[in-house]
Design a protein around this nucleic acid. Sequence first.
RNA 1: GCGGGCGUCGCCAAGUGGUUAAGGCAGCGGCUUGUGGCGCCGCUAUUCGGGGGUUCGAAUCCCCUCGCUCGCCCCA
Length: 430
Amino acid sequence: MTNLKNLRGMLDLLPAQSKSWQKVESIALEHFSRAGLQEIRTPIIEQTELFARGIGENTDVVGKEMYSFDDRGGRSCTLRPEGTASVARSIVQHGLLNNGPQRLWYRGPMFRYERPQAGRQRQFHQIGVEFVGLASVISDAEVISIAWNFLKDVGLNDLTLEINSLGSNEDRNIFKEELKDWLNQRFDLLDADSQKRINTNPLRILDSKNNSTKELLSEAPSLNDFLSNESKSRFDYLQELLVNLKIPYEINYNLVRGLDYYSHTAFEITSNHLGSQATVCGGGRYDGLIRELGGPQTPSIGWAIGMERLIILAGDKILQSKSPDVYVIHKGEKAEKLALEITCQLRSSNLMIELDYSGSSFSKQFKRADKSRAKWALVIGEDEASKGQLLMKKLRDKQKDEESREYIFLKEDLDQLIKKLIIKENDELF
RNA sequence: GCGGGCGUCGCCAAGUGGUUAAGGCAGCGGCUUGUGGCGCCGCUAUUCGGGGGUUCGAAUCCCCUCGCUCGCCCCA
């Protein structure tokens, strides 16, 4: 028992799980590269101001969840709570848009200071996609389809895609005023959180989970009724494209999302197997963000998937542990030296080799070899070592053969052996 | 930030005031000085998250503290 532990909400990824992560990540990378996306990596620490401006001062993420600190130079720094703001900053800073629209993906740890619970920790990992500089609705549909197909390919069923349109800034500003008036007339009926939000973030009241507020809101004006004709036709076209792609969706007019930069398309992919944190993927269009950060007006859309939640959903079906091709057993000083040499040689031919380190009896070493589920045991004892010989023994099929096959060969013939191992996996060696 | 539940070996656990803290898995050693999947035998917590108190006596009762977990808010 040690006093030194991980910080709350910051989890170790242990070997038993890392295989699932690698598998999921490799599927994601495959999808991204087929879609022609390029990777971008940005620092996990940024100036606090980036998030305050990019995400919005009045959001929960900025208001109460940021890991912020002053560095030794007195600058306020923040561990990134999400990826989009950093990517946007990087694109502006390096003038990437001069090369045309950017179709990017990223992955990495994000940090939010919250109470951990099922599917939520303080350090979590997102994998995300950003299309920057594209206004067309087909980019909305494409971005959504990349997420959807990826999740399907990981093996997830029972997913729900929810979409909404937040309209243009103008649409939303008109609606906001209308909504504020309506809410102010009913101020006393609102819950305390919603009362506070009337002036700071009235749209989010629509998303309130408070039951009496919810009930009240069923009568409230709907953003959908305030969409301009252009916004409406965008939303209709997106739906048409999704239908055409056979991606099922539901419209959720209360889907607002917590970050200020969204406009027009907003979407979430949810699962009811995640406890109360149902969202596995969230995203939307953010046409104003790049300009907010000092760049040109640039239409953009993206999403982020929470890796931890994805892994929870993928469960064990994604897990396939590999077993070594050869388990190397040895005894004695000379043999030990030879065993290490052979092990390295075999590994450089892309074979998976496990070397025994125990120095215990052959019986024990064989037991471990068996447990490792290796296909072959390579035995090097004192006899072999002094004669420069190696002994290969087939494992795991004793019940089929009364006598298990053993092959003796010279150290010099190792190359030949390798070829045979690679080509004929489970068959006879000679 | 606010509620509920819980903390006994690496993991899963029994034990709810009385001399030695079950059991299973994993690990290690042996039966078998150089040959595996089964089996059998043995070993592995001076200690019950930590601190303090009550008591002749505490893992078991009380207080404080730390941690975990689930939920609220919000999000991935």
